[in-house]
Amino acid sequence: MNEKNTMKINFLSLSQNETFARTVIAAFCLPLNPSLSELNEIKTAVSEAVTNAVVHAYPDCAGEIEMTAETADRKLHIEIADKGVGIENLEEAMEPFYTTRPDEERSGMGFTVMQTFMEDVKIVSEVNKGTRVIMNKTIAIK
């Protein structure tokens, strides 16, 4: 049984910080002894959420991204939040292959990857206020 642990980091919405965010979340959940597959799924989901903030939340400038995480027993809770432009039509944005930037070779798979790799994903967004991605995953007992 793992006791509760929390962490919080803030970083700029620069694409090179995606590796940083992935590495931090991987290190943070290591005490839960995730499998390589689980670890990869968590890292990929975080990468998708951070990419969204880098590309869409702050299209013309570098803004602040906050990543918080909590582990309690076998459960991992992650929140990735920005104070960017927000998402106008959340339902549309979450459809597989939907992208506002097809010209930039965007696959539109970000939310689908998050939903597939995590147990549950919730998005809270307000135009010109920002977006918060909330994800949970239970790490299996080995």
Partner: peptide, 13 residues
């Protein structure tokens, strides 16, 4: 060692 959906977009391009 790692690829996310941005990689999918790049390969499709």
């Amino acid at each position: 060692s790692f690829m996310d959906s941005t990689g999918i977009g790049m390969l499709i391009g």
